[in-house]
Amino acid sequence: MMQETHKDMPQDIRRDKVIHLINSVIEKVGAADEISREHIYEELRSLHDIIESTRADINATRAGDISGKHIPNATDELDAVVLATEAATGTIMDSCDALTSYADKMNPDQKDFMLGEVTKILEACSFQDITGQRITKVVKSLKIIDEKISSLMKVLGDKLPAHLSSTSSDDDDDRVGDQRLLNGPQMPDKAISQSDIDKLLADLF
């Protein structure tokens, strides 16, 4: 039967083992005359292995990416949703204003009908306020998580492997082929315009 590695151990068992090993080393150092250096070395070696496997676990979570890339991306996307819905709602309401003004030229029945429908549109537009507030709450929560992870990264500092303290590029995208082309709507500052696309197509064909 294969021996269980430190990496396979649940976190709480691993923590108990660390405490046990530290106590054992302290005890043996205290009774150094009776215990061989090899025993102490073996236990220190076990401690070292546990610390290394813990580092590997942290490595696997890509904490630097969460704080440096994924959370900023998520907050940017949500901010873009708020801006886009706000702009669209503004356009709808401009049309409502135009319809309200035009209603003055109608007969009373038509005017009542028009204003009634415009009122329904205005009521529906309040979704933008509610969704905006909800998204703002989510963005705040994400920023708190970001701060917590950043603090953790600072505490661990140079004790982590070098690649953990910096963010990776898109190389962690494990999709292949055409799947890599599906990235959803681009952020306004990163998207290319329709005229750029037209120009690109004209150049290509």
Partner: peptide, 11 residues
């Protein structure tokens, strides 16, 4: 929220 100002204002 400017949207809400406009909605209430129009109503």
């Amino acid at each position: 929220y400017k949207t809400m100002l406009r909605i209430i204002g129009n109503l």
